[in-house]
Amino acid sequence: MVPTKRRAINHKEILFVVAALVPGLLFYGVYNLYGIFMTFQYSTLDWTGISQNTGFVGLANYLKLFKDPMMGVAVKNNLILMITSIVIQLPFALLLALALNSAIKGTRFFRTIFFLPMLFSTVATGIMWQLFFDPMFGILAYVMQQVGLGAYIIGFLADVRTAMPAVLFVICWQFIPFYMIILKAGLTNISVELYEAATIDGANRWQAFWKITLPLMAPTLRTSAVMSMVGSLKYFDLVYIMTGGGPSGATELMATYMYKKGFVEFGMGYASAIAGLMFIICFVFACVFLYVTRVREAH
């Protein structure tokens, strides 16, 4: 009767697993799956968002989306944000994490300082940097004035050329500490003995970094990269607060554009189509990235 007994235990275990998962699945189902499903349903409607009347329009919203020049601008801005996030945020975060992980005195102090931007509320951060960039009262303008660059002072958030870089800078400022903490946790997991062994074998610090730190950090970096990628594709808040997508669409992202279409212009159906497209883009990017990096890891 041994096999039956085993099955009985399994049965009990499964019950426990299911019971433990149900609350989580319930939340996930209601707030994620149901939401995603409804978004796609709304995206096939001509709906203002407040009215009881909805007209089914099929894929018309999506067709309109592909012809909308502003959508192209938004996607382009999202891609710029994604690339800067990965190319600037992650290496910087890794540098800071390495610095914190070294034996320098006062790392605790610096850890707190470096982490501060992450602790501020996004709205406060946005308004603070808005004031920083203010051409009349801002610190940046003041400093430029003092060092003789007064002629170059412009409304940094108001100029189509500088608005996007200014916002990107603030986004990096806010998120580098976040990845720093994740990467720092990853570094802590690497056994010190490996470095000791490497030192005995005559490896210098540079070699140790390339041969030990980086390969062992790969899973953490990969997770960070996915988070950063998906996060920047659906990014909204700092842009909404600092520029509202302006001037003239220079900082418009898919999410701010969606908000504008849905809540400002009463086009909930169209906004849902934007949300649907965002979902698809995020999903595809995440899948492709995970697949590609998995192959690399196997090598």
């Binding site: 308004i127 808005q130 960039f133 203010d134 051409p135 009349m136 009262f137 002072i153 412009i154 409304g155 940094f156 958030l157 108001a158 100029d159 608005a163 520029t243 302006g246 001037p247």
Partner: peptide, 23 residues
């Protein structure tokens, strides 16, 4: 107009500060 007026936020008082301060 002030430099960068398209980036100055009325709601947080940017333009009113210019006005109140006599600038």
């Amino acid at each position: 107009y002030p430099e960068g007026m398209n980036g100055i936020n009325y709601d947080t008082g940017g333009s009113r500060m210019l006005f109140y301060s006599g600038r």
